[in-house]
């Protein structure tokens, strides 16, 4: 009898409004506010999910338990976590209504998704999309296009905001089905294409942005100079391949250039 009354009470549990979901999305923009080495994004996850959890569990004890379980270790990509956040909120909503979903299922799903989402986000956003646009923007800035920063921000944030808003919504709608949906995006293939385009940008950038003063300005001298620059770049990239760190290379290069200047070798 007690179980029945409990279940009917749960069926009357509050539903999440679109405003609640929007609050979760907006909070997810501060996902890494208190990023720490111990449990990484745990506080960020709980902070983002808090408006939904407070609505779903009006009972103080249940609310504390819900927040407490989302303060466990969490580390993923800050954008891609939106998919997981959406799915977890939906699962919590179903749990609060007394549907057949256990807390262990929610936590297992959260843990299982955090690694792959992190890898996917790191590989696409950090290692492909941002460097690709960064290099393109750097080239355009060095050419002298003054609107470069605005264009960079607008273009970069198209997939970012898509994932934050639509990704969260898809997670909320599809729940566990989100795995299939993300697979359809084929982000690894996109990363591979971006990496190829990156080389195109770097190749086109060298002759246009690196302009040494050549006297006299003949085609032959220019071409040799430009090939010399490419050779220099290949040599420097070999240093990186041999695990010489950027800091060390910058120190060495700066020292050499300044030393050449002090010794008055440069004409």
């Amino acid at each position: 009898m007690a179980v029945d009354s409990g279940k009917s009470m749960r069926q009357n549990a509050p539903c999440l409004s679109k405003l609640d979901l929007l609050r979760v999305i907006i909070r997810s923009f501060i996902f890494q506010g208190s990023w720490n080495f111990k449990k990484m994004q745990n506080v960020g996850f709980a902070f983002s999910a808090a408006p939904a959890l407070r609505r779903l569990y009006p009972d103080q004890k249940e609310q504390e338990a819900a927040l407490g379980r989302h303060l466990e270790f969490y580390n993923s990509h800050p954008y891609m976590a939106s998919f997981v956040l959406g799915a977890i909120i939906k699962m919590e909503e179903r749990h609060s209504k007394g549907e057949d979903i256990k807390i262990e299922d929610i936590l297992t799903f959260k843990k299982a998704m955090m690694g792959p989402m992190g890898a996917l986000g790191d590989s696409f956003f950090w290692a492909s999309w941002r460097p690709f646009l960064g290099a393109l923007a750097a080239a355009l800035a060095l050419i002298g296009w003054k609107l470069t920063p605005i264009a960079f921000l607008l273009v970069y944030n198209i997939p970012h905001f898509y994932v934050k808003f639509f990704g969260f919504w898809q997670g909320y709608i599809l729940e566990r089905g989100i795995v299939e949906q993300i697979r359809k995006y084929d982000l690894f293939r996109c990363s591979a294409h971006l990496k190829s385009f990156m080389l195109i940008i770097l190749g086109a950038m060298i002759p246009v942005v690196i302009k040494l003063e050549c006297k006299p300005p003949s085609l032959c001298l220019n071409l040799i100079e430009k090939l010399g620059i490419v050779l220099g770049i290949l040599i420097i990239s070999e240093f990186f391949r041999r695990k010489i760190t950027l800091t060390r290379l910058l120190v060495i290069t700066s020292s050499i250039c300044i030393l050449l200047g002090i010794l008055n070798i440069l004409k």
């Binding site: 290099a135 770097l202 420097i236 910058l250 250039c257 300044i258 050449l260 200047g261």
Partner: peptide, 19 residues
């Protein structure tokens, strides 16, 4: 002149790193 050379060196290091 050394600092001017460094200007180009920074540019080349940046491109080389991405390459």
């Amino acid at each position: 002149r050394g600092l001017k050379l460094l200007y180009f060196a920074y540019l080349m290091i940046g491109i080389a790193l991405l390459f």
